[in-house]
Simulated scan of single mutants.
Amino acid sequence: MLESVLLAGGGSAGHVNPLLAVADELRRRRPDVRVVVLGTAAGLEAELVPAHGYRLVTVPRVPLPRRPTLDWFRLPGRLRAAVRVAGQAIDRSGAQVVVGFGGYVATPAYLAARRRGIPVVIHEQNARPGLANRLGARWARAVAVTFPGTPLPGAQVTGLPLRPQVAELVAARHRDAGRARTEAAALLGLDPTLPTVLVTGGSLGALSLNTAVAGVAADLLAAGAQILHLTGAGKADAVRAAVAAVTRDARPGVALRYQVREYLAEMHQALAVADLVLARSGAGIVSELAALGLPAVYVPLPIGNGEQRLNAGPVVQAGGGVLVADADLTPQWLRSHVIPLLADPDRLAAMGAAARTVGVTDGAARVADLVEGLA
Rank of each mutant, 00 (worst) to 15 (best):
E3F: 12
E3T: 15
S4P: 15
L6D: 09
A8I: 00
A8M: 01
G9E: 04
A13K: 01
H15V: 09
V16G: 05
P18L: 07
V22Y: 11
D24C: 14
D32Q: 14
V35K: 06
V37D: 05
T40V: 10
A41D: 14
A41I: 10
L44Y: 06
L48D: 13
P50Q: 02
V59T: 13
L64K: 00
R66Q: 09
D71L: 13
F73Y: 12
P76Q: 02
A81Q: 08
A82E: 05
Q88L: 15
A89N: 05
R92T: 13
V97D: 03
G100K: 00
G102W: 01
A106G: 06
A109Y: 10
Y110K: 08
A112T: 04
R115D: 10
I118E: 11
I118H: 09
I118L: 15
H123M: 07
E124Y: 07
R128W: 10
G130C: 14
L131M: 14
A137F: 08
A137K: 13
T146A: 11
P151V: 11
V157F: 05
G159V: 02
R163S: 01
R163D: 03
E168Y: 03
V170K: 02
A172F: 09
G178P: 14
L188A: 06
P192F: 04
T196C: 01
L198G: 00
G202S: 04
L207R: 15
L209W: 03
G215A: 02
A218G: 14
A218P: 13
D219A: 12
A225N: 04
H229M: 08
H229Q: 09
T231S: 08
K235M: 12
A236T: 05
A236F: 06
A238T: 10
A242T: 03
V243A: 11
V246C: 10
A255R: 11
Q259V: 15
L271M: 13
V277D: 01
A279E: 00
A279G: 04
R280Y: 06
S281R: 03
A283S: 10
L289S: 02
G293S: 03
Y298Q: 09
Y298P: 14
V299Q: 02
P302E: 05
P302Q: 01
N305G: 07
Q308E: 04
R309Y: 02
L310N: 06
A312N: 03
A312R: 02
G313Q: 14
V315G: 04
V322D: 07
L323K: 00
D326S: 09
T330R: 03
T330D: 03
T330G: 08
V338Q: 01
P340E: 10
L341W: 10
D344Q: 11
D344A: 13
L348V: 12
A349G: 15
A349T: 15
M351C: 04
M351I: 08
V358L: 09
D362S: 12
D362P: 11
G363Q: 03
G363P: 03
D369H: 10
L370A: 06
E372Y: 13
G373E: 07
A375Q: 11
